[in-house]
Every structure is written in structure tokens, then in C-alpha cells.
Design a protein around this nucleic acid. Structure first.
Lengths: 108, 108
DNA sequence: AATCCTATTGACATAATGTGTCAAAATTAG
DNA sequence: CTAATTTTGACACATTATGTCAATAGGATT
């Protein structure tokens, strides 16, 4: 078992926490990303979609594990698709089986 | 283990197979759904998005297990989000953990 | 081939959604 | 209070989704 808590925070919340940890203002990070401060603010609060590119750039800016952020980013997108669905967990299991099957047979 | 094959068919392919099994023409099913034949054709071939509502209506029309179709529908949407992603399966596992956590704590 | 039924394709207009930009308002820090 | 930071909302624009329709293609039958 991991020593950390189960993370239920969204990718946006996670990015905000990391940024606050580094004590970087939105203003500076937005400038580094070359996007408007308003957009970054909304991304952190889940009001605007975050792109994979932004996630990777932020991993660099924050010197944070990119894979960790990407998994958080992707799982967010996945959860969005099954929100409020009773069959969500069942669908996730099926999706995982399919994904494994596809991965195993993708190699030529 | 199940006696069936691992199903890698999409919800569209599945719906088409069911329809062919019932020997119903697109024309008739589209009429029952009150949508254009062209759209249903495209839905079965993955060229147009299928909605949850259509899936449920088709479960009725075909007298087919609705949950089974819904799981297929949802897992398709999930897989679409992680297509080509190396971290896809990892993200699915994290999403499942989160979904379970949310479900367990959702009850008031 | 000609006819009929079915299915596919593409073009089009329109609707819905996403995106960047900006400025004003609100919040927080010094 | 003042200044910096963040949030909010409005707007124009781009991108994407959707429904409608007609032309095309495919298959079977005669």
C-alpha cells in the first residue's frame, strides 16, 4: 500500500496545489505557458479543458513527474465519461479488458 | 472463464450484428427511432456518435439487454479517451479506484 | 440489363460547443 | 488603503456536431 491518501482531486486541483507549493503566481505560469491568466485559472478550477500539451509543459515548469500528471489527466477524462452512470465501474472493467487485448495485439 | 470470445467490437458493430440477427433493415429501425437512415447507418459504422438515448431505444426495439449495451456504449467512450495513450491502462486503473471511492462516499 | 430494395456517401445549412482576448469585479497580501 | 493576484463574465471567432437531403453504390430478383 502507498503511504499517500487516495487522491480524489482533479488534475486541475492537483496542478493548483503544485503551483501553490512552488509559490508561483498564475501570472508567471501563464506567461511561461504563453496563455491568458484567465484560461489557466479556469483550467485549474475545471472550467476549461486542460490539454495534454499544457499538462506536459506544466510538468516541466514545475519539475514534476509527467507520467503522474498524465495519468491524473487521463483518469479525469475517463471519469467525466462515466459520471453518474450506474454501470460506470462495470464499463471501466470492460474497457480495461479491451485495452489490454488491443495492446497485446497491437504489436504487429 | 467465459465461453464467449473477448468482444472487441464497438457498440456500433454490436448493434449492427444484433439488427442483422433480427433481419431488420436500417429503414425500419430508423423509422422506429425517428431518425434518418443515413444517421443510423453512420452510427453503426462509428461515423456518428451514438447517444445513450438511442442505445436504450434500440435495446427496446431489439429486445436486447439494455445494461449489456450500455456497458458496451460506455466502454467505447472510455476507450476513445485513452486511444494510443501509453498510460491508458494505468489511467483506467486509477479511474476505477476513484470511481469506487466516489461511489462509496456518494451515499449521503 | 432493368427493377427494386437497401445501404452508403457527401454536400449543405444550422446548431452546439470550444477557444482566445479582454476588462471589470472580487479577493488576498503587504 | 494599495497593489498584486485571481475570478468572472462578455464577446467574437473557430471548431465540431447534427439533421436533412439527394446522389451513388451494392445486392438480389426477374
Amino acid at each position: 500500500m502507498s503511504i499517500g491518501f487516495m487522491s480524489t482531486e482533479t488534475i486541475g486541483e492537483k496542478l493548483r496545489h503544485i503551483r501553490e507549493e512552488k509559490e508561483l503566481p498564475l501570472r508567471k505560469v501563464a506567461a511561461l505557458l504563453d496563455i491568458d491568466v484567465a484560461i489557466l485559472s479556469k483550467m485549474e478550477r475545471g472550467e476549461r479543458r486542460i490539454t495534454k500539451e499544457v499538462v506536459l509543459k506544466l510538468a516541466n515548469i514545475y519539475d514534476y513527474n509527467a507520467d503522474d500528471l498524465l495519468v491524473s489527466f487521463l483518469s479525469d477524462k475517463i471519469l467525466y465519461e462515466i459520471q453518474d452512470e450506474d454501470l460506470g465501474i462495470e464499463a471501466l472493467k470492460v474497457a480495461e479488458e479491451k485495452a489490454k487485448y488491443i495492446k497485446a495485439n497491437r504489436k504487429k
